[in-house]
Design a protein around this nucleic acid. Structure first.
Length: 585
RNA sequence: GGCGCCGUGGCCAAGUGGCUAAGGCGACGGAUUGCAAAUCCGUUAUCGGCGGUUCGAAUCCGCCCGGCGCCUCCA
């Protein structure tokens, strides 16, 4: 086993060129070669902040968060930019509807987006420029396109002339001739129906900025060209976004930028697959989804909040937790469609428990928190010599496979399997080496186990998983709940010691029914809590019954123990004619 | 109509020419446990259909069936 060598850029660099990425433009997977050696520039199209985000908005940020982590792990210095579109037709419409200034709506929804990103563990974004803060660069960009003859002014609007770009359509595989759109209400101001707006003249009462073409606001696509140019350069490494942005958004971006610069905009175009709400509902938040919701609204309005998961992301996070949702997204290769259902989130989340239990086991064995394990942060530093130890050989093999999967277009779905395999390997070793008892004191055995845990943490870190302990969602009631469960566990322990298995089993079964699973360890009992409604009350009813039975049997030791324990939780019992009630002060 | 994507065990999901078709959830059997839970071991698929290319295909080609996306705002 090797010591953790200080990682150097050189050691990490050697492996770095093995990453391959599928490029939507060339429709092929090819090795990643950076524009600037050792560096990666990534631009991801962010949201238009006009209403609350839904889980579909998190797909791109989560996978790109992993991509940045993995590039960093591979020795690159990464700059990741995500834009916020805070001026737009829909935003204007929403501000009118709500009677608020557009900037207020944008700010509110930006905060919503930011909170959701944080909940999903997306914390790798370096810059989040707003369109309204980029106005100078946008205007300068448009002026340059007019100057170069790729754009023209028309009654205060400015349009990009797609016919001037011989390559127009290359991203989404379209020809300018095939663009049969009706051109919108601005059709008569365009030279060709396929032309798109770079600048829109302001209408009365709408937010506007001064420009050489009069007051107005930018079209949708130009901000990305202006921002990426300003922050990442004329040619940068990776441009990402949802597949739905391919046309017209990215097609128009690439046209603007490449006509202006005369060189490629991005070396790789990455598009994540879209999330669907159900088998036939179409894309989440898409047309079919919206139409279906309208139908549901007209018929069974109550089901909307629970169906599909569109909107109400904060509620979903509160129910499921961010790490479950993140994991749910990472189980699938990023280019695939994901069909969302909360049941599926729960099912995949069940697998996470395997890891959480292993982390507890790690703590029992080593006496230190798994979350404090100092894992290698670079792939060059994480390699170790397994010698002829079967456990370490297995860990090393799965580490290798994990890296190969991630190198292959960030195949998180395949990589996750190796995480499970390593967890199983460690559990098996802990069983065989009896690490929770006699084996604990064998430094050599402990070292093997710790090496495996270090590798697990090294790898899962690149997926942004298991970074820190998950929050127990309960809040202040959680402490009381834990106290009451501890009391019941203690009573049961006493009963078992006295061979009163009937009482012991009854307690366990009823805790189980209330969503609490007891796990008997050699030296103590632990428990896991599945949140359900009225959990505390259910458990208190059990406590009350046990106390009543004990008093009837004149077993005052138990009754007293209960009373004392409840007192420390500020819970009082009141015996009334119809039964005993409890109250927490 | 134009341009695309997808169809792998009960469910989810890797695998895109060749070792015994990953992994998760679930189910069943076993070890372990006072009984459990957890953990470990084992069982659970020939890859939508048909035809073709090939020594060899889930993986390439064609047709068919089924599902979905973009072409209008959309991560």
């Amino acid at each position: 086993m090797s010591a953790t060598a200080p990682s150097t850029a050189a050691s990490a660099q050697s492996a770095a060129t093995t990453i391959s990425i599928y490029d939507t433009l060339t429709k092929q997977k090819r090795p990643f070669v950076p524009v600037t050696p050792g560096k990666v520039g990534i631009y991801l199209c962010g949201p238009t902040v006009y209403k609350e985000s839904h889980i579909g908005h998190m797909v791109g940020p989560v996978i790109f968060d992993c991509i940045k982590r993995y590039f960093t792990y591979s020795g690159y210095e990464v700059t990741w930019v995500v834009n916020i579109t805070d001026v737009d037709d829909k935003l204007i419409a929403e501000s009118v509807r709500r009677g608020l200034p557009m900037a207020d709506v944008a700010e509110e929804m930006t905060q919503d987006y930011l909170h959701n990103l944080a909940a999903f563990g997306v914390d790798q974004i370096d810059q989040m420029p707003r369109a309204t803060e980029t106005m100078d660069e946008i205007i300068e960009f448009i002026a340059a396109l007019i100057e170069q003859g790729f754009a023209y002014e028309s009654e205060g609007d400015v349009y990009f002339e797609t016919g001037k770009d011989p390559q127009y359509g290359k991203l989404s595989n379209r020809t300018t001739d095939s663009l049969q759109g009706e051109g919108g209400e601005a059709a008569q101001r365009k030279r060709s129906l396929g032309d798109f707006a770079l600048w829109k003249a302001a209408k009365e009462g709408q937010p506007s900025w001064d420009s050489p073409w009069g007051s107005g606001r930018p079209g949708w696509h130009i901000e990305c060209s202006a921002m990426s140019r300003a922050r990442l350069g004329e040619t940068f490494d990776i441009h990402g976004g949802g597949l739905d942005l391919l046309f017209p958004h990215h097609e128009n971006e690439v046209a603007q930028s490449e006509c202006r610069h005369g060189k490629p905009m991005a070396n790789f175009w990455m598009h994540n697959g879209l999330m669907r709400a159900g088998a036939s509902a179409g894309k989440l938040g898409g047309r079919a989804d919206r139409e279906q919701q309208q139908v549901e609204q007209a018929t069974v309005a109550t089901k909307i909040s629970r169906s599909g998961g569109a909107g109400g992301l904060a509620d979903l996070v509160a129910r499921q937790g961010g790490e479950r949702l993140r994991f749910f997204l990472l189980r699938t290769q990023y280019r695939s469609t994901i069909v969302f259902s909360e049941a599926e989130v729960e099912q995949s989340g069940a697998g996470l428990e395997t890891f959480y239990r292993l982390f507890k086991r790690y703590e029992r064995i080593t006496g230190e928190s798994y979350y404090d394990v100092d894992a290698p942060r670079f792939r060059g530093a994480g390699a170790f010599d397994p010698g002829d130890d079967d456990t370490l050989k297995s860990v090393a093999a799965h580490r290798q496979h994990f890296i190969e999967s991630m190198d292959d277009d960030f195949n998180t779905g395949a990589a996750v399997a190796d995480l499970f395999e390593i967890a199983r390997t460690l559990n098996r070793y802990a069983d065989q080496a009896d690490l929770e008892a006699s084996g604990k004191d064998d430094p050599a055995k402990l070292a093997v186990f710790k090496q495996g845990a270090r590798t697990l943490r090294e790898l899962s870190g690149t997926l942004g998983l298991f970074i820190r302990p998950i929050q127990s969602a309960g809040g202040e009631d959680q402490e009381t709940l834990e106290g009451v469960i501890g009391l019941l566990a203690s009573i049961r322990q006493d009963a078992r010691a006295a061979k009163n298995f009937e009482l012991g089993d009854a307690i366990r079964d009823q805790l189980q029914a209330a969503g609490v699973t007891l796990l008997d360890r050699p030296d103590a009992t632990e428990w896991e809590i599945q949140p359900t409604g009225n959990q505390l009350d259910a458990l208190m009813q059990l406590v009350i019954k046990i106390r009543a039975d004990a008093r009837a049997a004149k077993d005052f030791a138990i009754a007293d123990k209960i009373r004392d324990a409840l007192q420390s939780q500020s819970i009082t019992l009141e015996d009334r004619a119809g039964g005993t009630e409890w109250d927490k002060s």
